[in-house]
């Protein structure tokens, strides 16, 4: 079996084992694309492994869109172990697409540091209990319903995830910055490209939760830092 040389394969027992943080970690290591190949729908050895994988990959791709990375850099394909030709076809199609998009970070105008920072924030977000929990509930929400017995449509789940991800990524970016040193709202706003009034609101929310505290003031600007 011959296929393009720019692919490095990593074997996992089941696509369900792949955590979103692994995908983001790969991007942090500089890969230009992540191709995930797993069993066909309904053919999972562990029954729901590839369904869980689809949910997690969908969330990661939404997250990539939010931080400004082309979501085509992540692709989830299905094939059975007997389909060598299909593997070659998928691998070649994917590398072709990645070549079209170019090296990672081309879609972000700012420098490499910004890309790294955003990926780190995204990784911190997906590693948090919140997102793990919510994404783990996705199938349940659609089939059985939530705690109130309300069932979600695909559209609703999409809206819901986008909303939570957008909030979560901003909060993690703010937390990463405040970890370094105390900053004012304006400092944070300039670093993460979020309007100051949005930053202020997130910081007020974080203070309410006891995550962030007031450190002092610098002239007319109050400075905030993470609660020890």
């Amino acid at each position: 079996m011959q296929y393009v040389p720019d692919i490095r394969t990593i074997r996992v027992m089941c696509t369900g084992r792949i955590d979103p943080s692994m995908i983001l970690e790969a991007f942090l290591h500089g890969v230009d694309g992540v191709l995930i190949l797993g069993c066909r729908e309904g053919e999972c050895h562990y029954v729901t492994g590839n369904i869980e994988a689809a949910n997690k990959i969908d969330m990661t791709s939404r997250l990539m869109k939010i931080i400004g990375i082309d979501s085509d850099r992540l692709y989830f394909g299905h094939l059975s172990s007997a389909e060598g030709a299909r593997f070659v076809e998928l691998a070649e199609g994917f590398t072709k697409r990645i070549r079209e998009i170019g090296p990672l970070g081309r879609e972000i105008k700012e420098d490499k540091e910004v890309l790294k920072f955003r990926l780190e924030a995204a990784k911190a977000a997906v590693e948090s209990e919140k997102l793990r929990w919510v994404i783990g509930k996705k199938t349940e929400f659609m089939d059985q319903g939530n705690k109130y017995g309300e069932r979600f449509t695909r559209h609703e789940i999409g809206r819901l995830l986008d909303g939570i991800l957008m909030d979560e990524i901003s909060v993690k970016e703010i937390q990463l910055l405040l970890q370094e040193r105390p900053l004012s709202v304006r400092d944070v706003s300039e670093r993460i490209d979020l309007p100051p009034h949005r930053v202020l609101r997130y910081i007020a929310g974080l203070r309410r939760k006891g995550v962030v505290r007031l450190e002092g003031t610098d002239g007319v600007s109050p400075l905030y830092s993470l609660q020890g």
Binding site: E129, I164, E168, R201, A204, R208, V211
Partner: peptide
Amino acid sequence: IEVCPINLWDDEDQGLSFR
């Protein structure tokens, strides 16, 4: 509060903060 993933307009604070 720490784990809730949903940010809402805070009525009590006239929406100046999140709950």
